[in-house]
Design a protein around this nucleic acid. Structure first.
Lengths: 136, 136
DNA sequence: CGAATAAAGGATAAAAGTATCCGAAATTCG
DNA sequence: CGAATTTCGGATACTTTTATCCTTTATTCG
């Protein structure tokens, strides 16, 4: 479904929203330890999210990652598309180069609904709302 | 969603059901050409399906792959699980080692439904029925 | 300023998935 | 039988993903 990179990204973001009370920045080390994922690999992923302004970061002592006001509108769909690419949830399920409602692959109609439902669910998960306790 | 191997497998099986009228066996070359996928790679995949008795095959001249009576009950879910593994559609969407309704990951409840729906759709696609024109 | 800290970024290595090559085994047909 | 055909099976190469290593850059604090 999702790549490992993407799973780590989602888990890290959820972890960050759960640590909201502690108003300090969260370091990669802490996250990697808590989530039990490889630290350097997670660092790359967080940097990618940060570079695309989905989360925020500060360098130096007491630095780390945090969720800014502007990041509040970011959704889980944004996270997924940033890490796995837009095609991950939109390209043909059978890998056909051209597949849409007019030129559908044999399974197009059977899976279009659940794919769209998935995207709807992901796009309804805003980081800002997750900070307030409600996940989706 | 599915690996390329799995996409090829599904497409090949669908192709075979569409060629039912021509009562001859279907060779890898014909399928690879029609589906525009690498022939040797497709061969491996078909061999794997054949070894697990999801499709049937005969060697030699005029040989190839075919769908036996017994293969009629095989579903697309069987195909997917044979190629991508059972975990592909059943393991935690966030990759957590233990994730079930009692110890759910943060997204478990949000995606359990659509995952099960996906599996239900796939398991309702029997090869035998596809031979008769109805895909799912 | 200088040392310590933590993200950023480049390079490399390991693992998994994708793809190709080639010979062996089985079957058909002349 | 012998040649041709086609799946079967092992080995190898290429590509992407996953993971690690190490240096640079920015920031904090004494």
């Amino acid at each position: 479904m999702f790549t490992k990179s993407c799973q780590y990204a989602i888990r890290a973001v959820i972890y960050m929203t759960e640590q909201k009370e502690s108003l300090k920045n969260i370091g990669v080390k802490e996250m990697a330890d808590s989530l039990q994922v490889p630290q350097q690999f997670l660092a790359k992923i967080l940097q990618q999210l940060s570079k695309h302004n989905l989360i925020s970061s500060v360098k130096g002592p007491n630095g780390g990652f945090y969720i800014s006001e502007a990041n509040g509108k970011v959704t889980l769909l944004d996270i997924v598309e940033c890490i796995d690419g837009k095609a991950a949830l939109s390209s043909c399920i059978l890998g056909m180069p051209k597949c849409d409602s007019e030129h559908p692959c044999p399974l197009h109609h059977h899976f279009y609904g659940s794919r769209e439902g998935l995207k709807t669910t992901l796009s309804s998960c805003e980081i800002g709302e997750m900070l307030n306790g409600k996940l989706c």
